[in-house]
Design a binder for these strands. Structure first.
Lengths: 338, 338
DNA sequence: CTGTTAGCGCGTTCAT
DNA sequence: ATGAACGCGCTAACAG
């Protein structure tokens, strides 16, 4: 089943069939109709491989993420794919499992499959991989890494706005001792969030103790552990910001387990606004980073670069915004500790 | 950058290079070494498209799921991909969004991309799509749908064991009124789970009222709503089984909101054992269906069919097993209702 | 407007 | 053991 069979059936040449399929406009409507009928009757689909071979474009994008099981990513993947399909692109997804060595394998696969571009949405990037990539003249879009160049786009997340709003919110509720549970500091994104928080705090002239900034692992158990640490301080914070929602959920658990209540005794703020956050007990006040937007804009960046004539890279901003729910409340004058 | 350049550099023919790459064994070790060096120096990767074109095999599998955002699927996708990469296959994932019309588009994409096989892991399948697929001589693996034929494999989930264990567990705790919250009955999988439950119940000679089997939507809000219905009955059930964990989490919420407690007042059992279930309040007793196993076995089925000489379909069983956590407890003699 | 034909990069005969 | 040449399905350049 190929273009030749269609041509035979329509009693036309393969060229005419090809032109009809590709809407080149140089085909008489009546002829085109014949072609379409033949295609219909045979249930013919063009062979993408062959097309890719001759055109040099695979119409595929790679999407590299850390871990599809992390609830941060599925929405990102979904919106990226949605945008892609819409434009006739296919997506190859690869997980690095937070392992920068696996990244090499992912990139290799992408190159072998001749993708037209790659979105690298992980927070860890091996720098010597970058040179390998640049070498390939492959359009890439990064998340918060490196700088814009020809072929290289970048999505910049503006953490400061959302975190600023959160700190403002917490401060206006009368909280004085504000803690922070970061992600694993090996992750660039975790470091960025942490320093954005610290900057915000000090900009407001709030004294910040070293010990009330602790490290989690961006998972529930890490959040729980970290919160337990904070609770064991002589003067525990009355409000805690976290580096992602899973961490916040862990914190919720630690607090509840101790017999304290959220938000009456301690306020908690998450980060990301994953689906689940609406359903925690209590629903989580959190800083939303729209993965939907991230995925869509990542695709757009690649698409613009590939289809555009200049092949220029783009710099795209994505904002964060505070979502108020029920895990934050005014500070008690005398918080009840055991 | 192609095989010809490598050949030139190694002062050999493209045929020899090709043979070396494909391990045909017909190359003198010293010659092969030359080729490898040239490949190394040029950083050459074979063009997968061209290979696919000539070999007729794309080394890609399609994976069709309902919705990557549904926490049931990411693990499945991950294990499928893991197995695939391991064997040199690439994966194209497609979401139907529970929309059987979109399924058509997904299948179309798969065919266009000339995948070597498709795993259809959604619970809804348009029957007239099946004929289209069968027509293509495309290896397929289904989940609980249809029967095994040449090229067509099937994964059968044995719901009865896990559900049997759960019912047994609940009954042995002294519960008499056992409710069930199903998934949307438009979904085959939901209907299967529901009827497995009903069969179990009646097999044990437990009277089952119609009204204590209600329909959810496999999401948290649906579970909450359905549980609210159950709670408003004159004699609400003292234990509730659900069609998936999200539903169970919704039920948890509804119960807690009413001022009742889990498991003291009402026991809840989930289904699937998603990651999250360990972290609910209380941790969820649930019937585990390993998505990991599902993904791996789905890949294996396709792989065996494609690489095997007989191209036969396979029937693979996947079991379920009860995971005891803390959302179930002995029935109170007189449950406290408001 | 339509047909003929030359590659795209590679695997695979068929020679040597 | 190695090389020359054909063809996979398609698009594009050139002819008509």
């Amino acid at each position: 089943m190929n273009i030749k069979e269609v041509a035979n059936r329509a009693r036309l040449s393969t060229a005419t069939v090809s032109r009809t399929i590709n809407q080149s406009g140089l085909v008489r409507p009546r002829t085109a109709e014949k072609v379409r009928r033949a295609i219909q009757e045979l249930g013919y689909y063009p062979n993408t491989q062959a097309r890719a071979l001759v055109s040099g474009r695979s119409q595929m994008f790679g999407l590299i993420i850390s871990d599809i099981v992390n609830p941060f990513f599925p929405e990102l993947v979904k919106s990226f794919e949605f945008a892609a399909i819409h434009r006739g692109y296919e997506v190859i997804v690869a997980n690095t499992d937070y392992n920068s060595e696996r990244m090499g394998g992912c990139v290799r696969r992408m190159i072998e499959r001749k993708v037209d571009g790659v979105a690298i949405m992980t927070s860890e990037i091996d720098s010597h991989l970058l040179s390998e990539l640049a070498h390939r003249r492959l359009p890439i879009v990064f998340l918060d890494v490196g700088k814009v160049k020809p072929l290289i786009s970048n999505i910049r997340v503006d953490y400061s706005k959302g975190i600023g709003e959160a700190v403002q919110h917490i401060v206006s509720l009368g909280h004085k001792r504000i803690g922070f549970i970061s992600g694993p500091l090996t992750l660039k994104s975790a470091r960025t969030r942490r320093s954005a928080f610290l900057k915000c705090i000090s900009a407001r002239g709030i004294g910040q103790r070293r010990q009330s900034v602790v490290e989690g692992n961006h998972k529930i158990d890490g959040g729980e552990l970290a919160m337990t640490q904070l609770l064991s301080l002589r003067e525990p914070p009355t409000a805690v910001l976290t580096s992602n929602d899973l961490t916040a959920i862990g914190a919720l658990r630690a607090i509840t387990r101790t017999g304290l209540r959220v938000p009456e005794d301690i306020s908690v703020v998450g980060f990301d606004d994953i689906e689940l956050s609406r359903f925690t007990q209590p629903p989580l006040t959190t800083i939303r980073l729209s993965r939907d937007e991230l995925g869509r804009k990542a695709f757009d960046a690649l698409y613009e670069t590939v289809e555009g004539q200049a092949r220029a890279g783009h710099e795209i901003k994505v904002g964060t915004v505070l979502v108020l729910r029920e895990s934050t409340a005014p500070a008690k004058s005398k918080p009840r500790f055991r």
